Amino acid sequence: MRALVGLWRWRHNPLRRKTDLVEAWVALVAVLLIAVAVPLAGFAVGGLTRGALLQSVREQREVRHEVAGTVIKKVSRPPVDPDPETSSARDRHSRVLAEWTAPDGTTHSGTVLAALVSPDPGDRFRLWTDEHGQVVGRPLDDATASTHAALAGIGAAVAVAGLVEGARRLVVWRIVLQRYDRWDQAWEKAGPDWGRTGTGL
């Protein structure tokens, strides 16, 4: 922002260097890009992601079906899971041997996770299968799809802002290097004995 203020202050200053104006203009362009391109990128990526995810939700709902399972017996717990996140999610479920009828009418059985704290034989629970009765995950819902799309949009906006700021810093770095080169050239023109000029030494 200092460079933007400097753009106004340096307009008629005789000490103004060309690089001062370039640096101020680069800062102004960066601010405008961040103000305009960042939100546009976020909305565009978020919208495209949301559309793709909602399409995936529709496709999953077409091929995944919720069916009723019947507990045959409870299965002993698996070994302790070292990941606390997955183990806490599994604590709300029980591993059971169950049977269910697929949408195509065939009967299936197997070990599945049931949303039952203490299952007894004959208890019923809901599970998701494909058309042939194979157990699948619950389809993505609209709210989760929208949340993922929003996060993708935010990520894209942050990435664009980082690219703009990185480009601005790169340009300013090049400007500073040019200034140093010009100072070195001016120093060489002055000569190594500039302090003794005319003294006869």
Rank of each mutant, 00 (worst) to 15 (best):
S109R: 13
A149Q: 08
E131A: 15
E99W: 09
P119W: 02
T107Q: 13
D130C: 07
R92L: 14
E131V: 14
A114C: 09
G166S: 09
P121A: 10
A167N: 05
Q134F: 12
V171F: 06
R124Y: 06
R174A: 09
T144Q: 15
V96A: 00
E165A: 11
V96R: 01
A98G: 04
D91H: 13
F125T: 01
D141T: 10
E99H: 14
V158C: 13
W128Y: 12
G110K: 03
L170D: 05
D104Q: 12
A157H: 01
V135Q: 06
D142R: 12
R95W: 04
R126H: 07
W100M: 02
V171A: 05
V158T: 11
L113M: 13
S118Q: 15
T144K: 15
R138T: 10
G105P: 05
T147M: 15
W173P: 02
V158K: 06
D141G: 11
W128S: 03
T111F: 01
E165Q: 15
G155V: 03
H132I: 10
T107M: 10
W173D: 14
E99T: 13
S94E: 04
G166E: 07
Q134D: 13
H93D: 08
P121S: 08
E165K: 12
V135L: 05
I154R: 08
F125A: 02
T101Q: 10
R168S: 05
P119S: 02
L97R: 08
A159V: 05
A161C: 09
V158S: 12
G162R: 05
A143W: 12
D142W: 08
V135F: 03
L163G: 10
S94G: 09
T129Q: 02
T144A: 15
A145E: 08
P139N: 09
V172G: 02
S94L: 02
L97F: 06
G122M: 05
D120S: 15
G166W: 05
H93S: 07
S146R: 14
A156S: 07
D104M: 08
R95F: 07
V96M: 02
D142F: 08
A156T: 04
G155T: 05
W100T: 02
T129V: 11
S146T: 14
V164R: 03
T129Y: 00
A156E: 03
H148M: 15
Q134E: 11
H148V: 09
P121D: 11
V112R: 01
H148I: 13
V136S: 08
V171K: 01
T147N: 14
